[in-house]
Amino acid sequence: MRTIDEVMPVYHFRERHRREIRDTTAEAVWQALHSVTLNDLALTRMLVAVRGLKGDRSKPMFDGGPIKLLEQDEPLYAIGAGISRAWQPRPSKLEVSTVDEFTSFREPGWTKYLTDFRVEPAGDGVVLSTETRGYSTDTRSRLLFGCYWAVIRPGSGLVRRDVLAAVARLTARHRAARP
């Protein structure tokens, strides 16, 4: 299992978020993380829907969402990737199926991005964190993506925090439902 640090040690942009979830296990948080749907997002469901997560709003976001999960170390770590020209009105996207395919991609004019999720046991609960990193394959795409990132970064961060909050709510709901 390769981590985000191993797959993309050099990057042009980065965003990290974390949330402590008490009175739970890594397994319960992992299950909630993999069941989060667009409907579970309290603040940003419309923002995510507008930007590219179309279709069934009750389908887990990891199934057909903005990133494709490439590797998982259940219940502690998952890493997903994408390659796009996000700055375009209708972004061009390339799908990759493996970490090796992702790391070997070097065609100019694109931005490669990774997102990971870590579930780390901590005391009577866990810390759930996510990090996104991006690397543009040439100077022009780096400038174009930089302008795009400057505009969308606040919303991007809000979406990630909303996903972490949704996982915490789902975990609490499942805990309350146990006999």
Rank of each mutant, 00 (worst) to 15 (best):
13 F>W: 15
131 E>R: 06
110 W>V: 01
66 P>T: 14
25 T>N: 10
141 S>N: 06
42 A>L: 08
46 M>K: 14
149 W>P: 01
86 A>H: 03
84 S>E: 03
62 F>G: 08
93 K>R: 07
101 E>N: 10
128 L>V: 10
23 D>Y: 13
85 R>L: 07
3 T>I: 10
72 Q>E: 04
41 L>F: 11
92 S>G: 15
114 L>P: 00
121 P>H: 12
121 P>N: 11
18 R>I: 10
64 G>T: 01
135 Y>D: 08
66 P>A: 15
96 V>M: 14
9 P>H: 12
64 G>V: 12
165 A>T: 12
47 L>R: 05
148 Y>L: 08
122 A>C: 08
93 K>P: 10
141 S>A: 11
7 V>M: 01
144 L>R: 04
24 T>P: 04
140 R>P: 06
174 H>G: 10
55 G>H: 15
38 L>N: 01
72 Q>N: 08
119 V>R: 01
96 V>D: 07
171 T>S: 02
7 V>N: 02
157 G>P: 06
89 P>F: 11
155 G>A: 11
83 I>K: 01
134 G>E: 09
37 T>W: 01
51 R>A: 02
171 T>N: 01
157 G>M: 13
31 Q>I: 05
57 R>E: 14
66 P>Y: 12
82 G>D: 09
51 R>T: 04
92 S>H: 07
27 E>M: 13
161 R>I: 15
83 I>E: 00
167 V>A: 04
163 V>W: 00
69 L>S: 04
33 L>V: 03
38 L>H: 04
142 R>E: 11
41 L>S: 02
172 A>W: 02
178 R>Y: 09
133 R>V: 04
116 D>K: 04
151 V>L: 08
128 L>P: 02
118 R>T: 10
115 T>H: 10
26 A>M: 04
156 S>M: 14
35 S>G: 12
41 L>I: 13
3 T>H: 06
85 R>A: 13
13 F>M: 11
90 R>T: 15
95 E>A: 05
174 H>Q: 11
80 G>L: 11
178 R>L: 14
117 F>E: 08
54 K>G: 13
79 I>K: 00
47 L>C: 09
143 L>C: 10
50 V>W: 02
11 Y>F: 12
66 P>E: 08
139 T>K: 07
79 I>S: 01
11 Y>G: 02
96 V>G: 03
68 K>V: 15
69 L>K: 09
16 R>Y: 14
89 P>Q: 08
148 Y>G: 04
45 R>Y: 05
153 R>Y: 14
118 R>I: 13
89 P>L: 15
94 L>D: 03
137 T>F: 12
175 R>L: 13
79 I>W: 02
166 A>V: 05
161 R>S: 12
28 A>F: 01
32 A>R: 01
37 T>P: 02
89 P>T: 15
1 M>R: 07
159 V>W: 03
134 G>Y: 00
106 R>S: 15
165 A>Q: 13
91 P>N: 15
108 P>C: 11
23 D>Q: 06
101 E>D: 09
173 R>D: 08
34 H>E: 12
119 V>C: 04
2 R>V: 11
100 D>N: 11
100 D>Y: 12
